[in-house]
Simulated assay, not measured.
Amino acid sequence: MRPPVVDSHAHVFPEISRAEGRALGVADEPWLRRDADGAGMMMTGGAEYRPVTAGLWDPAERLAAMEATGVDVQVVSSTPLMFGYDAPADRAADWCALVNERILAHCAAAPERLVPLCQVPLQDVDLACETVTAAVAAGHHGVHIGNHVGTDYLDDGAMVEFLTHCAQVGAPVLVHPWDMLGADRMAGHMLPWLVGMAAETQLTMLRLALSGAFDRLPESLRLCFAHGGGSFPYLLGRADNAWHRRDLVRADSAKPPSGYLDRFTVDSAVFDPRALRLLVEVMGADRVLLGSDYPFPLGEETPGDVVRAGIASPGDRDLILGGNAVGFFDLKGNR
């Protein structure tokens, strides 16, 4: 029996009013504006951020899209605009509790098909650990985080402490790039999304490897990087070459970057069969999860099309389309 088709990278922005958004205590609070034509707008304070469709907040629309595209299960995570990392930590903790409650309610429309991930106030490690513990107990299957908070990346001591806690409570971690570096040099054409996201993800992964953070983290940690690992898989040879040739590069890590490929997974959101084949060659078919970035326009319109076009082995296709996600997110009770 083949495993279900599981989309591990799909976003939600629950219906949150501006008044509720103001609880964050920031000037550009995130909230959702519903428009008369059935569409919506993600808002930051009084400014329009991005137009969105109903699948982002309406579970019926989400489920209809899943039926139309052959997706059995979606792992649902918040839109990164909602992270709240710039807010005071206590306000961010209350905000995350609200968001997590709304995500649970959204997924309750079809609990066998919609799998919730929580978000946490990552700017405060103690509150973040408390939040993920409570969220897992409430029914979340893991946690969705940004790849950095300000200048602190996941190799920072507090971040390593949080990731260690996630391993201890059995919470898988989906890492999403956000607040992209160099945005002031990439005006127009969505270049921060096209270039910055890939760079942010590679930067995070290399920092974890070269800083020795992977050597300190528990091997039981389930860690997945969105967007195919960004630039990392395609520039891995460059990083390994530098590690072997320069003591400055290898000063803090026991192994070259390629020595840590068994410590994380990536999603399949690379949009080109040739790129996916290289990704699978680098990572192994058992470390790639189907991911579409639903329901945003830069996502894969029919989740799994690139996997079916790019991966010849039926066994490898089954792993990527759903088999890997069943184990990663503890989905054995989902169809």
Score class of each variant (00 low, 15 high):
residue 7 D to A: 06
residue 306 V to P: 03
residue 194 L to Y: 09
residue 247 D to T: 15
residue 155 D to K: 03
residue 249 V to P: 02
residue 136 V to M: 10
residue 129 C to E: 05
residue 275 A to T: 13
residue 332 K to C: 14
residue 261 L to R: 13
residue 91 R to T: 13
residue 251 A to C: 05
residue 330 D to M: 08
residue 120 V to I: 11
residue 204 T to N: 01
residue 145 I to Y: 06
residue 131 T to Y: 13
residue 310 G to C: 00
residue 79 T to H: 12
residue 293 D to W: 09
residue 99 V to E: 10
residue 41 M to K: 15
residue 5 V to Q: 06
residue 234 Y to N: 01
residue 198 A to N: 13
residue 312 A to V: 00
residue 187 A to D: 07
residue 330 D to E: 12
residue 153 Y to M: 04
residue 260 Y to Q: 04
residue 16 I to D: 07
residue 42 M to V: 13
residue 291 G to V: 01
residue 126 D to K: 12
residue 191 L to P: 07
residue 24 L to Y: 02
residue 38 G to W: 09
residue 290 L to C: 07
residue 309 A to Q: 09
residue 241 N to W: 15
residue 118 C to K: 15
residue 184 D to S: 12
residue 264 F to V: 01
residue 98 L to P: 06
residue 270 V to Q: 08
residue 232 F to P: 09
residue 109 A to K: 15
residue 51 P to S: 15
residue 248 L to K: 10
residue 116 P to V: 02
residue 213 A to Q: 07
residue 129 C to G: 07
residue 89 A to M: 03
residue 153 Y to A: 14
residue 198 A to D: 07
residue 147 N to I: 01
residue 245 R to H: 13
residue 247 D to A: 13
residue 201 T to Y: 02
residue 253 S to H: 08
residue 26 V to W: 02
residue 44 T to F: 15
residue 271 F to K: 14
residue 17 S to Y: 08
residue 249 V to S: 05
residue 249 V to Y: 10
residue 72 D to E: 14
residue 301 E to Y: 03
residue 164 T to I: 10
residue 136 V to H: 09
residue 30 P to T: 04
residue 291 G to Y: 05
residue 75 V to S: 03
residue 315 G to R: 01
residue 267 D to T: 10
residue 113 R to G: 04
residue 255 K to F: 13
residue 92 A to S: 13
residue 207 R to D: 04
residue 240 D to Q: 03
residue 190 M to T: 11
residue 306 V to Q: 05
residue 87 A to Y: 05
residue 333 G to I: 07
residue 133 T to A: 12
residue 115 V to M: 13
residue 21 G to D: 06
residue 242 A to E: 10
residue 274 R to T: 12
residue 187 A to S: 11
residue 234 Y to Q: 05
residue 65 A to V: 08
residue 26 V to P: 00
residue 265 T to Y: 12
residue 61 E to S: 15
residue 42 M to I: 15
residue 91 R to F: 05
residue 240 D to W: 11
residue 221 L to D: 01
residue 63 L to D: 07
residue 125 V to I: 04
residue 53 T to Y: 06
residue 96 C to W: 10
residue 223 L to V: 04
residue 286 D to P: 14
residue 269 A to T: 02
residue 330 D to I: 09
residue 164 T to M: 04
residue 332 K to T: 15
residue 1 M to G: 14
residue 202 Q to G: 11
residue 174 L to F: 10
residue 283 M to R: 01
residue 140 H to I: 02
residue 32 L to W: 09
residue 295 P to N: 08
residue 12 V to H: 05
residue 80 P to E: 06
residue 90 D to M: 14
residue 8 S to N: 01
residue 45 G to L: 13
residue 254 A to M: 06
residue 264 F to S: 10
residue 50 R to G: 08
residue 300 E to P: 03
residue 42 M to Q: 09
residue 221 L to A: 03
residue 12 V to S: 03
